[in-house]
Amino acid sequence: MSVTQTDQPRDTAQDTVWVQDVSFIDSIPRSVAMTFVLLVFIGSWQMATSLGLVSPIILPTPLETLQDMIFVGKNLLTGGYMLEALWITLKEVFYGFALAIFLGFTLGVLVGETAFGEKAVMPYLVAIDTMPKVAFAPLFVAWLGFGIESKVALAAFIATFPIVVGTAAGLHAADENARMLFKTMGASRMQTLIKMKLPTGLPQIFTGLKIGAVGVMAGAITGEFLGGGKGFGELIRIAASQLNTPRVFSLILYLSLVGLALYVLVTWTQRKVVFWHKERVGAHDG
């Protein structure tokens, strides 16, 4: 009697269906959660300014900022002086990044491939990489003047190091099995580099490129702050000196869009090139 009972599946849903625990937070889509945080942020910002907790000279209201963004947007779209400034900054970022990619990749391969580079050059590169590199800005201005060159140089200088380090690390990512396999196939050093070590190291190389993309923006703007010129950084500096904080905010937001676009471009390229390497956005599945 008792035996037949235990053999029968009990028919209450709770016992037969195994329901995975889903917490409330897990059930919210990422986009909704992010919008929520943004609204809370703008809400507190509006509160802080409209209640007079912060002086409007220090912090403009969200509405003022939005109005100024529309103004700046119009100027950009109609080809005004701000578009010219943006164009200059874009050029600095583009040339700086291109230079950094070329230098970073070349140096990274030399350092990662040769025992001498690894032993004697790499420690210096790591040491310089830990330095606050923007501190070199006045030097670049002194060397290259107030034109676009000093900004390109600073941007490239900042972005080169993460690319070198990423490339060199990437070339060491291949495991012993892969190396041994290439050896058994009688591969030359060049073949091993191109057909095995570089593809294996692409995820690290792209990590370096992403850090470099952030650095190249910082470099260009810092260069403009310290070295003058006619770029977007100069517009920010002027607006700040006139205590036009809504303008500063809106210019920074536009600049962030440029930085974001660059980052997205690198990430998109990575997805296309390193198609086999699945990278997750956050720590949680989402």
Binding site: N177, L181, G186
Partner: peptide
């Protein structure tokens, strides 16, 4: 060897002809 060590950027058949490609 103990590990198959196929390269993830090559399809199965591309992995197989790799020794020929190298030589």
């Amino acid at each position: 060897f103990q590990h198959a060590t196929l390269f993830p950027w090559r399809t199965a058949v591309e992995n197989i002809v790799l020794p020929i490609e190298i030589r």
